[in-house]
């Protein structure tokens, strides 16, 4: 499947898809989207990149081991829940702050942190499955 066309397009396609996945992730709270969908889109992007340019290229591109990404995501989600304990509300209660960055009000919340964690878990897990299958037991 390593045709020239696919190989040339793959980096752009992948970066576009990853960007799109982050967009989907961030808008998820108010529009269709969210961590699960975003994560799946990013994972497919990386899978396509892997098919086109080889597993080694993907591993270089994401730098961290996919399982490590996944683990960080799980930790983030769990900590987002723990965060609320410090505010003396039950575990997993959403906390919101509205700082002004560059003159724009930005809604930040522990819920967003949680969703980013979900995104990372899905990316990491699916990516590790896909990459593992692509390289098989060759190593």
């Amino acid at each position: 499947m390593r045709t020239v066309i696919l190989r040339s397009i793959a980096p752009f396609l992948t970066s576009l898809m990853v960007l799109f996945s982050i967009f989907v992730l961030l808008r998820g709270h108010n529009e269709p989207g969210g961590g699960f969908i975003g994560g799946l889109i990013a994972a497919s992007a990386l899978a396509i990149y892997g098919i086109a340019c080889g597993v080694a290229a993907v591993r270089r591109a994401i730098y961290f081991h996919p399982i490590a990404i996944s683990a960080v995501g799980l930790l983030m989600s769990a900590l987002a829940g723990v965060l609320s304990l410090f505010a003396e509300v039950p575990f997993m209660s959403g906390l919101w702050v509205y700082p002004h960055l560059f003159g724009v009000e930005v809604a930040l919340s522990s819920v967003l942190v949680f969703d980013v964690g979900v995104y990372l878990v899905v990316v990491g897990a699916i990516c590790s499955i896909a990459l593992g299958l692509e390289e098989g037991d060759r190593d």
Partner: peptide, 17 residues
Amino acid sequence: ILTAIVISFSFFAFLLV
């Protein structure tokens, strides 16, 4: 269903391997 889709996919992948 949303979470079920993702979980059944990872489960399917596990069965496949």
